[in-house]
Amino acid sequence: MCETCGCGEPDNKPEQTQDPIGRDLLSANDKAAQHNREHLRRIGAFMVHLTSSPGSGKTTLLEKTVEALKGKLSIGVIEGDVATENDAERMRAMGVPSEAIVTDGACHLDAKQVHHALHHLAEKGNLDLIFVENVGNLVCPADFDLGEDYRVVLVSTAEGDDKPEKYPPIFRRADALVISKTDLLPHVDFCIDKVKKHAQTIAPRIRTFEISAKGGDGLDEWIAWLSNIVPAGK
């Protein structure tokens, strides 16, 4: 049983069938992720997973998102980082319930880490919407389902417009793409249409947003989408 709430902690083991042939090698993580989804339904919250390379603006987007949804949705944040709690501290400074997962070198979060953080967050109040900010990395997080309802990949204009071509796995399982730092477009060589086209070739149903968190452009559409994915009545 879970040490925190007795919910039945995921055991990080695959199903106990003996035949190891053909079963996905991350089935234990997938099982823990499914447990997280069930937990989220029990507490009535939805979870959005943000993933990107370091410095693409995930935390700044979260700060602007929290400001925009203040009084409308109750938001909590799980912040993954290799060596600090800097991002979690930024969210706490805004009064947002936040849990830090410091990986001490590990390049991605997994579902069991998120499970523990979810329990600690739940102790801080009833939440409608939980964001998980993964470790900044465009490779390793791709394979690890955290139990999120939606996965969002950010690509900032300063990174270059070839990211879907260079890192296709991270886009393959994404529900949405945020092209961030659009205020920098006059200063960089970045073709938005190219990024969108390549991302949609990899993930045909991916939804795209173009946002300048600093200037505010594109935030309204993002906020409207987030508001819609949390069921009415929450």
Binding site: N12, K13, P14, Q16, T17, Q18, P20, R23, D24, L25, L26, S27, A28, N29
Partner: peptide, 8 residues
């Protein structure tokens, strides 16, 4: 994950 799948 390979070892976890093999263990049983």
């Amino acid at each position: 994950g390979i070892m976890a799948n093999l263990r049983p």
